[in-house]
Design a protein around this nucleic acid. Sequence first.
DNA 1: CTTCTTGTACTCGGTTTGAGTATATATCCA
DNA 2: TGGATATATACTCAAACCGAGTACAAGAAG
Lengths: 300, 300
Amino acid sequence: MPSGFAHAELIAVLVAVTANEPRVMTLRGGEALPYGPFESKHRSLQSGLRAWIESQTGHPVGYLEQLYTFADRDRDPQNPEEMNGARHISIGYLGLVREQDAAGDGRPAWHDWYRYFPWEDHRDRHPEMLDAIAARLQQWAKDDPLRQQRAEYLFGLNGKAWNEDLVLQRYEMMYEAGLADGAGQESRAVFGQPMVGDHRRILATGITRLRAKIKYHPVVFELMPESFTLLELQRTVEALSGLRLHKPNFRRQVDQQDLIEETGEMSSGTGGRPAKLFRYRPAILEAQSLSGARLPVSRG
Amino acid sequence: MPSGFAHAELIAVLVAVTANEPRVMTLRGGEALPYGPFESKHRSLQSGLRAWIESQTGHPVGYLEQLYTFADRDRDPQNPEEMNGARHISIGYLGLVREQDAAGDGRPAWHDWYRYFPWEDHRDRHPEMLDAIAARLQQWAKDDPLRQQRAEYLFGLNGKAWNEDLVLQRYEMMYEAGLADGAGQESRAVFGQPMVGDHRRILATGITRLRAKIKYHPVVFELMPESFTLLELQRTVEALSGLRLHKPNFRRQVDQQDLIEETGEMSSGTGGRPAKLFRYRPAILEAQSLSGARLPVSRG
DNA sequence: CTTCTTGTACTCGGTTTGAGTATATATCCA
DNA sequence: TGGATATATACTCAAACCGAGTACAAGAAG
């Protein structure tokens, strides 16, 4: 087999938010992400994947973005022989689909993504699991000040602030420390549900990307129904970020962006005062930047 | 050839900044980016590519990041038969190397990247070429209000502000309009030096990524020598972003980030008052975020 | 010693952001 | 019927940040 040839496939992190929980599409009882070889009939990977996903979920993909190409040599320790010398390449994609209506005929299974990363949900309480993780990490790092410092930073220990964007880096440190996968040292407890091969890492990559993206690009709306209340929008962002947001400020931000408009209708009250319904305004192309970082430009 | 097998290679956008000009490494007299099949001997793509680059340039790569995987069917219209059915995949990387000392023995050629995108340099004047481009675009869009609006947004026409981050989107629109490549309609002038296949698009992807990245991650320092003055740092950022920055504000920002420290030495005056020399402080891991986007978090 | 060029410190007003308060309008249930 | 409860929505206020500009310091060049 000539060098330069490889076995290549697509793998997708498909996200939906239902009932304020972020969900991800899985196979094999939740232990694998959907994947498959790509067909050559479509012009671009993007369009081929889009068609495939729609056939699988029965729903159009609102947003699709390439995530990362995974190609390290020891990716899949399960069958190293099968590919007789060729490298194994997976091109990962992140896709957002609108709320799926209760799992359809049931083949694709959607699972709460916090099942795989329980320590990432800081909406209602500080996850207790974090204390156990911190203890194990501290032991792992006890002879290495750099590791300690990094653990503090990544996991918000010793008064450091929690940064919701560091999903992948946290997972990688846990993996290194043997807390993520039973493969190496199987005696001790492992945190979060494992997945096949490196699928959990790929999922972490997807979550990381999405958490970063919602801050400066209005992709959340790809997860919302046609019309929604401001609180529903907020709950969706909270579900993704794993944080509770400050309601008045959230509203103000959304308002300033000019991304939504009233539909004129009201929500059919689910317990409190009815709320105005809004719809997304594909605001003059994707011109908006939900708070783009700035350089100190000079005029003249 | 079974579906799922593909011809795979690496392609690199290698950037350095010399004499306040952003340069990119090229082959074939500046018409191609460096590329090649990957070797299987290294554990990860990253480490293999790193070794390869260092052997080519004679310099260590400071920063290396995966860019994008290009795999569309009609990527390389030059030799569609050669791969008998297998798809052609290129995994693109962005690499930053420190100032190369005057091109060494000359094999790898470094070229100012504005040679390929002359309209992207707004440091000293509004590029005249933009007017010609605007005219051609306006004609191309004259029957389509959406195209018009998008052109205004992308190219800062009719009083709209110029956004330096939209390099790739601008290039893609020009490509669509037939302004980027002589292949389609060869009669009219084409803007910027073309490259082989889709290499120019890949370069645009790299520039886009880098311009976005310098705003929230301190990667600029990978392009700087050991010690440098604040103005040198500013000039480097300006070279990359294609903008002039406001000096006092730039200094304030850099100061606040706590990313650099004085070396104690002074610059050997190149014309004016000597400046303090600074060095990068690998500030407590990559904890810094040069102005991270915020969500309106709530406490409690 | 004057002018040029670059470096460095400071000011000032407008905008954004974090945090909190007050009030409106529904449903639920005793 | 009339709280209690839950949600919706409008304001306030101070701190931080940012864009823009000014003033002055210090070496180099003529």
